[in-house]
Amino acid sequence: MPILNNLMQQLVNGLALGSIYALIALGYTMVYGIIGMINFAYGEIFMFGAYAGLVLALTNYVNVYVALLGATFITMVLGVVIERVAYRPLRRSSRLSALISAIGVSFFLSSLMVRVKGPNTRGFPTLFENRIFEIGDFQITIYQIVIIGVAGLLMLSLHLFVTYSKMGRAMRACAQDQDAASLMGVNIDRVISVTFAIGSGLAGAAGVLAGIYFNAVQPYMGLLAGLKAFAAAVLGGIGSIPGAMIGGLVIGLTEILGVTVNLSEYKDAFAFAILILVLLFKPSGIMGRKANKKV
């Protein structure tokens, strides 16, 4: 059955792409859950992660895991610094100010990268040999396995961290009532920093994975990826962590399925069509709560 086989094939491709979106979407959703702002710079943090991975990979001494860990660490620090410099001073002002600041940060980061690394698209060095496994007619590349595996592992550890660690509990409490949490001894600034660190680290890791997968890194790659991930976060129900994971996968799958049915010119439009439909018909998203403001 060639159709079924083809569908399976596209499902795997969609899953790999969706994992990347889901990792970025997690950052959007976590930050929104805690301080109610959309950090539009996540796309650019994703791009920074890709470049960090690229630079590390070019040193030759580094294998894929070191590149991944290194890029994650660098973007974590980047996220914390961005929050300190661009968002914290605006914490008490209107949400719009923080949003505009985020857009500013995102332009700053991509322009900075153009300045430092040039505007051209760069290939990603081969960190490990790509191999293709064939199961019947159906193929899966080792890149896809690594992407889906790493993304799955990261999401699992995030889930465990948020559910079972003390800091995770403090994050969940802050999402509901910051003042009360602070009276229980929770340091709000610290929780926000940790949230930014985690969200940015996930986006950075996604950047390296995307660099490996598409074998292309360029300073504006974050714009579209970031917006699609935002659509994923809204689709899943912004503020909800499992929602962001599901939303990312759905957006990835839709995009790939759209390509399969010969709509590849519109491949970037699917995410935004979904975004518009969700906002029109179910603004709370798949996992979001109805009237409650945030998780």
């Binding site: 003390k166 995770g168 229980m184 985690i198």
Partner: peptide
């Protein structure tokens, strides 16, 4: 002002947050 979406046990555990350490790096 409880954390209404958290379990009863988690609510009380938050009360103990000020005792001991908590952080990203400690957790891992």
């Amino acid at each position: 002002r409880l954390f209404s979406e958290l379990s009863v046990l988690d609510n009380v555990k938050i009360g103990a947050h000020c005792r001991g350490k908590a952080g990203l790096f400690q957790a891992f």
